[in-house]
Nucleic acid binder design. Structure first.
Lengths: 349, 349
DNA sequence: ACACTTTGTGCACACGTGTGCAGAGATCGA
DNA sequence: TCGATCTCTGCACACGTGTGCACAAAGTGT
């Protein structure tokens, strides 16, 4: 009967097949397998036994069609190999799994057009919701985006950029505050900030957190200690280079500790210290931001602010599920965590 | 009309809606949208215009049901955060994307039961094929596995373990050969091997590659230089510890270069060299295996054998597509690549 | 013995798409 | 002008599942 059919499709049985074998209608089979009270005990058992014998496996595609709900989430990432997104994905996987959802994943490689295509593909597949990490969609895509009739949750991006969507982000200001307070607690009094002018909003928030923490400790706020490298000055240099070039001026200013915009800047700062013979953490303490993989492998291992990446993924699923239940969407702001390693210590003096 | 319906479901139009609006049957719409030659030019354009106006988005779920083909792949990984699997996933994503397939991903966390459940879930979703990386399924699952009527391709595991499935692996022996030939080319004559007895098959293959390369160069094969640490001796030590403990004996044996079973063993060997004041690579050259993230961050950065991880993912999709077209399945053995970094140099003598 | 309730089952439709086949209408040839 | 051919469209069914409703058979009460 299954002549000419590829081998792997042979013998897939449907409730109709079971119905025929058990001498009942397919409706009865459907109800029996769902333990409906409408079906007599005897029939139910007979049907179930037959289903097991025939190796019946329900067809989720057909179910999705009839239920108008696929039980899937689509996850759009810019890169599949970046540890940051990997953690977000793990968070989504965990929470989605618990909710009985399967997860589609695709990478946009930072190309807006590709990202839009992925979202549209997910929409065609009728995923129940879409989670986008680090979206690059500009207002150019507003119209195409407006056609998507599926809840979209943004991760690691602020919702005000894209009205109508909900976002899960983490509290950058609180993270900076955490880092600087750590330095204060260690006893530092002359604390610098090494910022990047080309990350406008982020930098402003982290600078603010730095200033707040200092003010809270009633420490002086020497403007020379808060060095934000201007975008024009940065040019095409990578973050590490910027850190390495900017650090010496801070050291000359007499700081005993520096909070860096991110881990790569901190690596540059570390290299500069080595070059100048300033020992870390004995003479200078350094704190990074992001907790990249490399922070652990540096010598000394870098104290840094970690984004709750896994939690961001989980939270995104949570928001999505709320939206699916018809509840109001909400924005989530998660608190960062300080990872204490060996690049910070009390000041030597 | 859509009263009480969740907001995000409003206004999803089907070909039936378009048909009604355009005054034709749904069959005509379906054909028009597929540019069927059966439909007149005028009707086709009219239908297409109407579809665009109504923001029609085809329902892939319904298509899957009718076509008996979902256009999806399921990928099972033991961990979503491990860089190795991330690369495999990226390879699958790329090749699947090109073939118009969407990718499901889920993590098994090394639990066989969870892995089996994921496979069964993918089966229910009627994925066209399943790719499993580093499967932990034992023969206990043979029966449940036999029920899966979907092609399964194993990555990073040898097919002989699980008859009936196809596998994509990489050539470990060739990798070892590559590493050792590199050392020979640099001028080394006394080359050691530091192996792990608890990875039976892998170790045997790498040892074999080592021996072949030496034989090929007509170099002597001092048994004292090939140290395979016995499983009993290893106990619960991690790979790095084993490398650190075993290295001194090799150095005493007078080797100028060591090929290590993997990167972690090489890290241990490096630590041992530091402890004994043997400079790497000036006095001793070290080669690792796997190309873990850390290999890049070591000082000196580690020369190592890289598995073609991305290519493994792509190849797995290729095998799967062949299987779908009814072709014979095939096993693929990929060639590794040597990544030259700074832990190898010509011998000092 | 008859009406009424309870229990169990099947019919028929829905979900959205694709397609074999029949047939209506137009065009063509003689 | 009439039959034959061609062009286009719709009917009806399929894919696999779930469910409202009708209805048959059995049980209950008077």
């Amino acid at each position: 009967m299954s002549q000419g059919r590829p081998h792997h499709l042979e013998g897939r049985s449907s409730i109709k097949d079971i119905a025929q074998a058990a001498g009942v209608s397919h409706s009865t089979v459907s109800r029996a397998l769902h333990d409906s009270a409408l079906i007599s005990h005897a029939t139910r058992e007979r049907v179930k036994a037959m289903a097991a014998e025939m190796g019946y496996i329900p067809n989720a595609v057909a179910r999705s069609l009839q239920a108008q709900r696929s039980g899937t989430v689509g996850l759009v990432l810019t890169s599949l190999t970046d540890p940051f997104f990997a953690d977000v994905m793990a968070g989504v996987d965990e929470s989605a799994g618990k909710a009985g959802l399967s997860m589609f994943v695709a990478a946009s490689h930072n190309e807006p057009e590709r990202e839009m295509e992925i979202i549209e593909t997910f929409h065609r597949r009728r995923v129940d919701g879409i989670i986008v990490a680090a979206s690059r969609l500009t207002s150019r895509y507003h119209d195409r985006l407006a056609r998507i009739r599926v809840p979209i949750v943004l991760v690691n991006q602020h919702a005000e950029d894209s009205p109508g969507f909900h976002a899960v982000a983490f509290d950058e200001k609180a993270g900076a505050h955490l880092a600087v307070r750590h330095l204060v607690t260690l006893g530092h009094r002359r604390i610098g900030y090494l910022g990047l002018g080309n990350r406008q909003r982020s930098n402003a928030l982290r600078l603010e957190g730095y200033q707040d923490a200092l003010a809270e400790a009633a420490l002086s706020l020497d403007p020379a200690w808060a060095r934000v490298i201007a975008e024009t000055e940065i040019g095409t240099q990578d973050d590490t280079d910027v850190g390495e070039r900017a650090m010496p001026a801070l050291l000359e200013g007499g700081v005993t500790a520096v909070f860096c915009y991110n881990d790569r800047v901190a690596v540059g700062a570390l290299l500069a210290c080595r070059g100048l013979g300033a020992e870390v953490p004995r003479q200078v303490s350094l704190v990074g931001f992001d907790d990249l993989e490399l922070a652990r492998w540096l010598s000394p291992p870098l104290t840094t602010v970690q984004q709750p990446r896994l939690a961001m993924g989980s939270a995104a699923v949570g928001v999505m599920l709320d939206l699916l239940e018809g509840q109001e969407g909400r924005d989530v702001l998660l608190s960062p965590v300080l990872v204490r390693r060996a690049s910070t210590a009390p000041p030597s003096a």
